[in-house]
Design a protein around this nucleic acid. Structure first.
Lengths: 127, 127
DNA sequence: TTACTTAGTTACCTGAAGGAAACCACCGCC
DNA sequence: GGCGGTGGTTTCCTTCAGGTAACTAAGTAA
């Protein structure tokens, strides 16, 4: 079994050692995709993100942003205003990912009804 | 702040109540994306999946497949062979998602080096 | 002087995800 | 009779992501 995804780099996402799994794992948390999607619309400040992405706590927002920044997907810029302003933007690298992220979120939006219907049917069948 | 993703359905992915978050959360576990990607290449049996997707345990594989089936993304077919054969395939709904999933995994593969480099730089800077 | 804003950090706690290992039934093979 | 393969379930345990709440610090406005 081979996979086109990893052949060129002689990696295999299905392999435990494949570093691409790190990327997948990073995005596979509760908030990263949502934050990436929000930032794809333009620069946003910390508290604005916190208000926009409902339900995220200050701590987790801070942690998530740090991880995304460490991965080079977003950039953090501090402005010496009063009070201090911190602006987050997608990097070029992050921007290359945003289309995919958007299409994922877009898919969720378009197909949520089908998914919910399937869940109801499944639950009814196994009741 | 509005989002093109949810406007038509009067949903908002950033809203806690948006059901699309359910989909995002479902995919945001350790194995779902990997399993979807593996199944996008064609039908696979249980133990074949287990062998291919390195590191997944029998229990978690079983659980993940059930959830994906419940969501209508994959189908389970039992063949009365000896020993019994169980084959998993993407549904039509699942197939519409596989392109996006593949592009996400593909992105990870192409850009893993940039991500790892960014991590090293970040860690060096904050040492 | 009190309160509010900015952007965080820290401590504590809990639930759920996931790993390990054993167990099940069925059957073929040798 | 014991081993291997099929496809699971169950139990137990641990880890960690994430939630809550309090705290910091600097400055502004009432």
């Amino acid at each position: 079994m081979t996979d086109f995804l990893c052949d060129l780099a002689s990696y295999n996402v299905y392999s435990q050692a494949c570093p691409a799994r790190l990327v997948l794992d990073r995005l596979a948390d509760k908030w990263s995709l949502l934050l990436m999607d929000r930032l794809s619309q333009g620069p946003v400040r910390f508290n604005q993100l916190r208000r926009d992405v409902e339900g995220i706590s200050q701590k987790v927002l801070s942690q998530s942003l740090k991880k995304l920044e460490r991965d080079g997907l977003i950039a953090r810029r501090v402005f010496a205003t009063v009070p201090v302003t911190v602006e987050y933007t997608l990097t070029e690298l992050g921007a290359t990912l945003s289309d995919t992220v958007a299409s994922l979120a877009h898919w969720a939006e378009r197909n949520i009804d089908a998914v919910l219907a399937s869940q109801r049917q499944y639950d009814a069948h196994n009741a």
